[in-house]
Simulated assay, not measured.
Amino acid sequence: MANRKSSTEASTEQLKADLRHLSQTIEELVKATADDSRSNIKELRERAEQRLHDTRERLEARGEKLYGEARDSVREQVDACDKYVHENPWTSVGIGAAVGIVIGMLIGRR
């Protein structure tokens, strides 16, 4: 769990750095536009486009990774719950009945 957390923090820091670099490049592009130096504008524009592309790819990869981790975690929890219910059927029935009674009491109070 600690490994996932440090991985998430590292990814967050990388994303912040990417966004910082992208915003700096865009600021440079805006400043260069004021000079109206055609070669300078073209170079900065290409750098901005490349950084935007790189940042987009990283965001997509991070989103896919987070989705996969969440899916795996939920699958593990479902498997553990299923295993528990199969190993302890009467306990599971008792828990379900208790939850049903509590919900019924809460609904009945309204």
Rank of each mutant, 00 (worst) to 15 (best):
M1H: 14
A2M: 05
A2G: 03
A2N: 03
N3R: 12
N3F: 10
N3A: 13
R4N: 12
R4E: 05
R4C: 04
K5Q: 04
K5D: 07
S6M: 11
S6Q: 09
T8F: 10
A10C: 04
A10I: 01
S11N: 10
S11P: 01
T12I: 00
E13L: 12
E13R: 11
Q14Y: 02
L15R: 04
L15A: 08
K16F: 04
A17M: 05
A17W: 00
D18W: 04
D18A: 10
L19W: 07
L19I: 07
L19A: 03
R20V: 08
H21M: 13
H21G: 07
H21I: 08
H21R: 09
L22I: 03
L22T: 01
S23P: 04
S23H: 09
T25P: 00
T25I: 04
E27T: 15
E28K: 10
E28A: 10
L29F: 05
V30R: 15
K31I: 13
T33S: 12
D35W: 07
D35E: 13
D35V: 13
D36H: 08
S37G: 00
S37D: 15
S39M: 08
K42L: 07
K42R: 09
K42D: 11
K42W: 03
L44G: 02
E46M: 06
R47Y: 02
A48Y: 01
A48Q: 06
A48C: 07
Q50H: 08
Q50T: 13
R51K: 13
L52R: 04
L52Y: 06
L52Q: 07
D54M: 04
D54Y: 06
R56Q: 09
E57M: 00
E57W: 00
E57H: 03
R58L: 05
R58I: 00
R58D: 00
A61E: 14
A61W: 01
A61M: 07
R62H: 05
G63C: 12
G63D: 03
G63P: 00
L66E: 15
Y67E: 09
G68K: 14
G68N: 09
G68R: 14
G68H: 05
E69R: 13
E69H: 07
E69D: 12
A70T: 06
R75D: 13
R75S: 13
Q77G: 06
Q77K: 14
D79C: 03
D79K: 15
D79W: 09
A80S: 15
C81Y: 11
K83S: 15
V85R: 12
N88W: 01
N88R: 14
N88E: 06
P89Q: 07
S92A: 15
S92N: 04
S92H: 10
S92D: 02
V93M: 04
V93L: 12
G94F: 12
I95D: 11
G96V: 02
A97Q: 06
V99R: 03
V99P: 01
G100I: 04
I101H: 05
V102S: 06
V102N: 01
V102C: 11
I103K: 04
I103M: 03
G104V: 04
G104S: 11
G104T: 02
M105D: 07
L106P: 00
I107E: 08
I107D: 01
I107L: 13
R109V: 06
R109A: 14
